[in-house]
Amino acid sequence: MIDWGPLILTAKLALVTTIILLAISIPLAYWLAFSKSRMKPIVETLVSMPLVLPPTVLGFYLLMAFSPGNSFGAWLQDWFGIRLIFSFSGLVIGSMMYSLPFMVNPIQSGLAGLPNSLAEASYVLGKSKMKTLFSVLLPNIKPSLLTGVVLAFAHTIGEFGVVLMIGGNIPEKTKVVSIAIYDEVEALNYTQANTYSIILFIIAFMVLLSVYMINGGYLKKFWK
């Protein structure tokens, strides 16, 4: 019988990560799209680093940072009583860093691609920057937002290296489905690994297919 725990945990992790990431990425992408600051290339680089770095690098540094034996981890524990290593919250933070470019990049290019006249018209009509962003700009880049949300969600589902290094494989807490597959393969339970893998395969296919269909305009009727 299939254990649904890892699948549910993965969905939960991906959902929480995506929601928090969306909240962070909108202001960040907005700044990146319109700022003329000299810091911009540096921030852009940092945001895109997880695309290039192996997840083990991130995992290794997070392991070091979160460990209560090191200063940052000890400080978190002494001041707030929280321990991020081997915990769900730790995984959320790791996943957020890991999936950041997948959320920020589409939103940023969406915003940068809008004609200036849109925002200018809104300002001329006396609307604030905030109001303009949420009522004018964002509604005009729905496909980019959707792409960001879906890619971040899907990428978090597919996360492995970071979780392996800081998760500790605890059932119901940090044993996500990618780890469960690895685990089952190691235990030579190929059938079980296959079940999980097929489910992931189907989910990934459906998710990406829906993005391409929506962005390609095949589902215009449902998505305006």
Partner: peptide, 21 residues
Amino acid sequence: KLVYGESIAQTNQFITSKSSE
């Protein structure tokens, strides 16, 4: 309280990085 390393090697890593007491 149990956290599982994928092998003895990762368990050692959890211990030596002081992630686990």
